[in-house]
Write a protein that binds this DNA or RNA. Structure first.
Length: 421
RNA sequence: GGUGAGGUGGCCGAGUGGCUUAAGGCGCACGCUUGGAAAGCGUGUAAACGGGAAACCGUUUCGGGGGUUCGAAUCCCUUCCUCACCGCCA
């Protein structure tokens, strides 16, 4: 959420930046500022009345104390009238605040000035490409075939007990999954992140804090009876640890493995085949809370960290800078990672590393005290390091040989085997 | 699920309608003291919004919401959460 006062001060430049995201916010800005003007005027009137009311109450108390009940009673009427009108004003103020809030949550974060204009993912810019693209043997298969042939994943069994998009990992397939989770966590811990294992259900306030509510209501699984939501990413519980917190030291670095639950309403076709898109999947997330002056430096460090994991796994990948049109609502700058999955000859998104600047922090009330003792908003960043299913798909597709599926060196101590036959 | 006790500034904790502008303690910061430190003494120590160049002032906030009252941390209703014991259970 953008801050209303910042919008006031920087209207023109903000409008120009939002154009990069293909958003024309001129009307929203003018209406939100008008409402805010009204809010201020209302508050001033209400405050005046309340001051008077407080003074009267005090006077009445003092009159009673010295036994002048008649004089005290005479003041009660006035006090009651003031009470009524101040209540009305406070109600109006609350209503205006809600209206302002409702507008502000509709305005996306400003993109970083370096973000290229663009309509869709076709306009993203490839920053780096790391090869080589593997040449597979004749008759190479996509992962959904391999997982069946080698008994790694039972999609049918998942269909039976839950439904499509809920695979059951079996035997060495399950071991490989577990190995990847541990490998990613260890990599992150070695890079200075603190590991957390958070709850997988969160309350409504947390979903508001990171912005899943109100706009993505339909994308999440919801337990109505307890009003709890299944998390779509570890970002939600972990970032919300710091809701309403005034942090003392930077940076804060967290990593967490969680399953992620997404309804993915409206997805279909080859996009969802096999492991490409699931309703439940595993992911290891990294989150940082940083001082505003250091957040872009940190973003680079996080991008390099994710790249180093892919290097170690010997996967071909490319790093993309998202254009305005593809940038998420809350993000100012995002780098996506895609790995090449040779069996289906496709690039698959496996990580998205973003700087949200103060956008989430404003919602979360996540702040620090600057050198002058003034309260300021922190910057938040997060990224996947990494999302499992597509890494899994690329790993087994790219490493398939006539003898079996080879496990990259870095993972062997985690799996306990170097080939799946 | 049942019964009971609670939720008060960063923390502990007092507070049964006006003397609370939330006591007292701990912690933290600054100062005095000291060769230096500790102790001691003193001062200060929340956030949001509004007004103001600033100093500062006003309003709101004692889990959340609503009510009674001229006046609520305190009384009433409601809701959430925590703890203890019991029941069930990995």
């Amino acid at each position: 959420m953008l801050h209303i006062n910042k919008i006031r001060e920087n209207q023109e430049s903000y409008l120009a930046l939002l154009k990069i995201k293909n958003i024309d916010a001129a009307k929203l800005f003018s209406s939100v500022i008008a409402k805010d003007d009204e809010r201020k005027a209302t508050q001033q009137k209400a405050d005046e009345l309340l001051t008077k009311g407080n003074q009267l109450a005090k006077q009445i108390g003092e009159l009673y104390k010295i036994g002048q009940a008649a004089e005290a009673n005479a003041l009660k009427n006035e006090s009651s009238t003031i009470k009524e009108s101040s209540k009305a004003l406070q109600a109006k103020q609350a209503e205006l605040e809600k209206e302002i809030q409702d507008i502000l949550v509709q305005i996306p974060n400003l993109p970083h000035p370096s973000v290229p204009q663009g309509k869709s993912d076709e306009n993203n810019i490839t920053i780096k490409e790391v090869g080589p693209i593997p040449t597979l043997m004749k008759g190479a298969k996509p992962h959904w075939q391999l997982t069946t042939d080698y008994s790694l994943i039972d999609f049918e069994l998942g269909n039976k007990i839950t439904g499509a998009g809920f695979p059951v990992y079996t035997n060495r397939g399950a071991t490989l999954q577990r190995a990847l989770i541990n490998y990613f966590l260890d990599k992150n811990i070695n890079a200075g992140y603190t590991e957390y294992l958070p709850p997988h259900l969160v309350n409504e306030a947390s979903m508001f804090g990171t912005g899943q509510l109100p706009d993505k209501e339909g994308q999440m699984y919801h337990s109505a009876e307890d009003n709890l939501y299944l998390i779509p990413t570890a970002e939600v519980p972990v970032t919300n640890f710091f809701r309403d917190v005034i942090v003392k030291e930077f940076p804060i670095k967290c990593t967490a493995y969680t399953p992620c639950f997404r309804r993915e309403a409206g997805s279909y076709g080859k996009e969802v085949r096999g492991l490409n898109r699931l309703h439940q999947f595993d992911k290891v997330e990294i989150v940082q809370i940083q001082h505003p002056e250091k957040s872009y430096e940190t973003l680079d460090i996080m991008v390099n960290h994710v790249a180093s994991i892919l290097d170690a796994l010997e996967l071909p990948y490319k790093i993309l800078q998202l254009c305005g049109g593809d940038l998420s609502f809350a993000s100012a700058l995002t780098f996506d990672f895609e790995v090449y999955s040779a069996g289906q000859q496709r690039w698959l998104e496996v990580s998205s590393v973003s700087n949200f600047e103060s956008y989430q922090a404003n919602r979360l009330k996540l702040r620090y005290k600057d050198e002058n003792g003034k309260i300021q908003l922190c910057h938040t960043l997060n990224g996947s390091a990494l999302a499992l299913p597509r890494i899994y798909a690329a790993l087994i597709e790219n490493n398939q040989t006539a003898e079996g599926i080879r496990i990259p060196k870095a993972l062997q101590s985690y799996t306990g085997f170097d080939i799946i036959k």
